[in-house]
Amino acid sequence: MKSYIVQLAATRLLPVTLILSLLVFYRGHNEPGGGFIGGLMAAAGFIFYAMAYDTAKAEKKLRVSPLMLIVAGLSFAFISTLPSLFAGNPFFTGEWISLNIPLLGKLKLGSPLLFDLGVYLAVWGVIITIIFNVMEE
């Protein structure tokens, strides 16, 4: 299935899916979306890339190993529990800060976002690991 058209499409679509996945991820707070779906979309981009070329090229394009994505995801999820401790609230309480950025307006950041980022990375890594392993067989 080494078609030049598919390869070109996969190369062009990869950044698009990544940006879209980040958008879905960010929108996940008050609207449908979130880390899980975002992670799936990010993985989908790389899976398409691997289908067009092969898994080795896709892994090279990813730069970090899928395992490191999972580790980073777990770490972010773990770190997201820490702010509640420093704030003296019960474990896992969502802690929020509001930033006023000129142009963009108000930006709310908080530990649930960090947790969601962890989910995003972990899902991304897990899906890629599974699919790439199956594709290599």
Binding site: S84, N89, P90, F91, F92, T93, G94
Partner: peptide, 9 residues
């Protein structure tokens, strides 16, 4: 006595 934690407040 029993330890209880309500996660996420």
């Amino acid at each position: 006595g029993i330890l209880v934690l309500h996660t996420g407040n």
